[in-house]
Design a protein around this nucleic acid. Sequence first.
DNA 1: CGCTGTAGTTAGACCTTATAACCACACAGC
DNA 2: GCTGTGTGGTTATAAGGTCTAACTACAGCG
Lengths: 213, 213
Amino acid sequence: MPDTDGRSPRERYRVQVRGEIKQRAWEQIATAGVSALSLNAIAKQLGMSGPALYRYFANRDELITALVRDAYRSLADTVRDTFDNGADLGKLAHVIRDWAHTDPQRYFLIYGTPVPGYHAPDDTTAISNEILAVLVEACGPLPDEPATPFDDHLDHHRAWAGDLPTTQTLHRVLSFWARLHGVLSLELAGHFGGMQFDPGLLIDEELSELRAQ
Amino acid sequence: MPDTDGRSPRERYRVQVRGEIKQRAWEQIATAGVSALSLNAIAKQLGMSGPALYRYFANRDELITALVRDAYRSLADTVRDTFDNGADLGKLAHVIRDWAHTDPQRYFLIYGTPVPGYHAPDDTTAISNEILAVLVEACGPLPDEPATPFDDHLDHHRAWAGDLPTTQTLHRVLSFWARLHGVLSLELAGHFGGMQFDPGLLIDEELSELRAQ
DNA sequence: CGCTGTAGTTAGACCTTATAACCACACAGC
DNA sequence: GCTGTGTGGTTATAAGGTCTAACTACAGCG
């Protein structure tokens, strides 16, 4: 996955090993969650002894940050590609849901419980904005005038969004994001356990009410 | 908070110390998250040496489970009391939001990233159902006929809900829960960081669209 | 071909959870 | 009121975690 065409052989090897480390890390996270991620165990799985791994990642946090970055990148690429193939918001929601289902802990690494005091590096928030930008595009054009009380409020607090999307568009993107995340995270966390309905259909309905607004 | 009127003095002392342990645990969780919770540190804060704490909680998981139970209990009582004082769904949403804001990590202990393989004990899921039951009451009466595609689906998968609430009511509770959790968890996790709007107003609008449905 | 820096090693400090073995005293029952 | 038991506390210890330090050996560059 990472570009393995580094200039020097050393560089290439380095990228290769970093990739293998992240691979094992993902396996651990998928089966036991990020809190159970053990650098020691990863090193031994790769046939090297504990501290050798610190040549590749300065510490546990740096490894996790790299994983967060890759997760964001993967989701952003998935969303971008899907939209470029002509998908609308409804299709995007299901692609995001499928992406989350392939590795729920990867989804929660991005959208789950935050670590107090941890500040995400700028490049990951930039990728997050990429995703939002695609959603804005996918919303298509909406009228320019605020139409609801929250539209009015948002119209006065939209410096973060630039001038291009209309306030109604921003509102719709926020609702889309929140409703999808609401159902999806409850579903993945098992809070619908025992209830036999299909969360995918609930998402459809939540979003259809969005579009019919 | 816990009933300190145990029969024997030993019993009372035990409840007292367990309470102090949980108190310190909450402080640690609030400032550093549940993954940083250290039984050793708690014991030393209470002036006793490490393993003494295992007289009160068999292991780390049991302490965390007790905290989860208390969190559920606190939220359920809050919701119940608020509703009994005449609140509607909109008011309930803001009370839940306020409850979450007083200790975001307590909210995430319930609704945040799940630990793979961890199965919540029955009594906590029972408390969770208490909360849903209040929400069903707060929804008030709704027509008996399914009105949307998801209503139809839900109508065939509602064995978990018993006979009393109508399918439309269940649908509305699920939407309320998902929309509130969607905005609230994104807000608490800092995903609206940089955006200057008031998430409380977004919740209002999400729920007003719900009621106008 | 030789120098340099990188990747690996082991040793160890310091933390964690958790168990085992032991001590002392508070309480319950007589 | 005395005594036996169990509870709450201790220290020691195992096993495992992160991470640093010191050292070795070799790959690749000039």
